[in-house]
Design a protein around this nucleic acid. Structure first.
Lengths: 199, 199
DNA sequence: CCATTCATAGAACGGTCGTGCTTTTTCTGC
DNA sequence: GCAGAAAAAGCACGACCGTTCTATGAATGG
């Protein structure tokens, strides 16, 4: 019972990469099988349904994201440095080789926002965790007195996420070479506002 | 040659509404025909290809957007009021009956960002025009001395768009009841920063 | 009112989709 | 090394996809 587990993981790795290009719906069993040199039915046997495949792809992507973005940031000093590290990590996540097709969560968000089901539930939960993570980092920055007391940390997390979405749009759709500079400037403005006491 | 033109337009109206729910790729000829009570081939005759249908759907949606959001805002006073009107118009655009499935451009942006072709080109051009429109409104606000001299109006347009994307994400995927309040707060912060001279 | 054009319907095509069922190959514990 | 289990392949299915061709109905201009 070892070989199966291994290919299962290999399938998911390839599936995440492929899904970042064609989306979760565009990810087809046949296409994925061909990419891996497997038969369609052989691959299908690893998942009871396409929905189950989508859910596992989202979970696998979340695991990679946690490993590559969140975990490194947690080793940075508490407060603003960690907040910045989360932002920087997300920016580089976007140009990581695993995601040549752009952030899989952004693509999935647009695809699934009106499609109830397990895949949507998994995505929403993951996004909620990520927003909580951002808010918690901001909360710590308040405690460390890097950010002003009374800062609405949920709002800060929301705004930070919006900056990331803007970056993704500018970079991936508009191919704006200034996308990253724009995102950094927007985020710096957020940081400045978070430091400044309410006027 | 009048009847055809009429149904052509009816088809596009329904197609825009349907595409906002299922996306541009998910919009199928058969499904659209059934929704309209037409035959698949009868509908197809109006468009030489599915790509052409997608392009025309995007153009039709852009026309509606211009009529419902941009045009009303242009009748507002130059400067900050007009900038605000553009933002408010976009917020209400999202809850318009035409778009029960969320903003079609946001969905299309995620679908098409890696799919070269006429549909992508049309979308990108439309988005560029919209960003230019936002930047121009900000430029006027600078001229009217509502915003500070030297404001990077393209950056402002980019940031404004990011706030809108954040709103869309919070509202449609996360079903956050505070989505609109969050977006307004974020936009107010943008306005405040645009007014304040550089520190 | 009639001839012609135009709009729609119908049927069929090759292809791909997700998904079962059956067989064959490959691994693995004793 | 063999028996049993696990993994992969092969095949077929019904459904739907975009697209084409042909026929038929309706609208229109003279």
């Amino acid at each position: 019972m070892r070989k199966g587990e291994l290919t299962h993981q290999t399938i998911l790795e390839t599936a995440v990469r492929l899904a970042s290009r064609v989306g979760l719906q565009g990810l087809s069993i046949g296409g994925l099988a061909e990419e891996l040199g497997l038969s369609k039915s052989g691959l299908f046997a690893h998942f009871k349904s396409k929905t189950e495949l989508q859910v596992q792809v989202l979970e696998a992507a979340t695991a990679v994201f946690t490993e590559r973005v969140i975990r490194p940031a947690l080793s940075r000093p508490r407060g603003e440095p960690r907040v910045r590290a989360l932002f920087d990590g997300w920016l580089t996540w976007d140009r990581d080789k695993i995601l040549e097709g752009g952030c899989i969560f952004v693509a999935a968000a647009a695809e699934l926002d009106d499609v109830p089901g397990p895949a949507r539930d998994t995505l929403v939960q993951g996004q909620r965790d990520w927003l909580d993570c951002l808010a918690q980092a901001a909360r710590i920055a308040v405690a460390e007195k890097h950010f002003r007391a009374g800062l609405d940390v949920e709002q800060f997390a929301h705004d930070q996420y919006a900056v990331m979405l803007g970056f993704h749009h500018a970079k991936r759709l508009m191919r704006d070479p200034q996308a990253e500079a724009r995102a950094r400037r927007a985020f710096d403005a957020l940081l400045t506002a978070a430091r400044t006491p309410t006027s």
